[in-house]
Design a protein around this nucleic acid. Structure first.
Lengths: 251, 251
DNA sequence: TCCTTGTTTTGAACGCGTTCAATATTGGGA
DNA sequence: TCCCAATATTGAACGCGTTCAAAACAAGGA
């Protein structure tokens, strides 16, 4: 994965190697923006404020980030990196699927906590299908793939027996499940987001139980239908001309 | 339900009965807005254009609609009314649950077709939890309740046997299911939205099968857990101080 | 040294959603 | 009839995201 894959995408990509000068300015703007997002939320953060606090002009901010929304793409990557770092180590010592899943989900909420308000306003623009920020969009694919890979590790590193039919689609399904949890979380107004954590506890148990039941002969056709369905869902994410799959190679 | 419940909510509510004059202007603005939404999409429709084409000043538009987003609330109501009218009649002659569900879902997509592009951009602002336009928000409650009532009719008018535990929560769950379908639909770029219709066909079959299976003794605890979960979900929709339930009285 | 080519930076300007103080228009009571 | 409070209507102004032509700067080649 090239370093400039997601982090460094200047509005007008410099023809070859990015200069040292521009790199610094870019980082300056990005760090300032993420800080202001945390402090003031998305709407509360104006591009003018970002530029000013970063010590550059308004135009410069737009030179490095095509739009305010493109700053969010950088947030996705940052958020995932922190998530990965937070749970990656602890994942090694645990074999139980439910425990592994719990660990990863809780970690996501933990690490995202400072951005709670921000993430709420985020989901607005993010769920516009035309927006490059939709978690389903092509532009979000790199981060989405990374996240799916993490969930694949969760399953494969566990001692759970998973029906082959299901195993193939499970990481993608779990990613959808994670999206659902996040959707709940951004709406969650309870103190310390206790409801979200409660939801995670309950649904994880449920999910693991369902995965177990999936091997019952009686339920086989139902599982089959459900799996076929995900194909349809995935085709939605990628426009007709792309044959991309969701997270196929392991690290 | 008072006539001015949702349709007529002037920014500064007139103390008593709304005057005839204002009523006309309001309708003029609303009709113009909905037309422009259809023709140009949400972003393509400026408040200035709405005002101009409606033959009033910009300020007047804001006198009747607190914000551009509040025009959407009116769209929700309109959309539901059209949906209801479209499927209400045909619903009487059918007893099979799957057929009834299919009918209602397809009808929703059919009647929403002219607003496809608009609805896409809509979901952006709609999924901001702080926005009064969130389908989960307090302000959307009247329409949400009406929609849930329709789904209740779908179930109760059918000859399907539903576990009592489930029966209570089913309309709310089906509403969530409908939201999911709509979410798919707004992302659907296929011609004539054939994918959405295919999705409806497949998922409806699945949903009905699951409802049937729910009575299996083996699955009882799982169903119980799932139903308990919905309580948590609903509590999310309504902030702490409200004890509101979702669709309790039949028409 | 100066010119050249490409990168970086700037600030003014545009169109938008929104607010608001001021004005015009009602309609009912004296 | 005239007056007055409630209702309707107006347009200028604000702050925002975004665009863009122009200027400043960097680095090599002559």
């Amino acid at each position: 994965m090239s370093p400039s894959d997601v982090e460094a995408t200047p509005a007008r990509a410099p023809s070859k190697a990015p200069t040292r000068k521009g790199e610094n300015t870019r980082n300056q703007i990005l760090e300032t923006a993420l800080r202001l997002f945390r402090e003031r939320g998305y709407d509360g953060t104006t591009m003018r404020a970002v530029a000013e606090e970063a010590g550059v002009s308004l135009g410069s901010a737009y030179y490095y980030f095509r739009s305010k929304e493109h700053l969010i793409q950088a947030y996705y990557q940052r958020s995932h990196d922190e998530h990965l770092q937070d749970c990656s180590g602890r994942l090694g010592s645990e074999r139980d699927l439910e425990a592994r899943l719990l660990l990863v989900l809780r970690s996501k909420i933990d690490t995202s906590a400072p951005y709670h308000r921000f993430a709420g306003q985020l989901f607005r623009t993010a769920s516009d299908p035309d927006s490059p920020l939709s978690p389903f969009s092509e532009e979000s694919l790199p981060v989405r793939r990374q996240a799916t890979e993490l969930l694949q590790r969760v399953v494969e590193g566990s001692d759970a027996k998973v029906t082959p039919t299901l195993a193939q689609e499970l990481p993608g399904l779990l990613w959808l499940y994670l999206m659902g949890i996040i959707l709940f979380w951004v709406h969650d107004r309870s103190t310390e987001c206790v409801r979200t954590y409660r939801l995670i506890d309950r649904t994880t148990e449920l999910v693991v139980r369902v995965i177990g039941l999936a091997s019952m002969p009686l339920l086989r056709p139902l599982v089959k239908s459900a799996v076929v369905l995900t194909t349809e869902l995935r085709r939605l994410a990628t426009p007709d001309h792309l044959g991309e799959a969701l997270g196929e190679e392991a690290p």
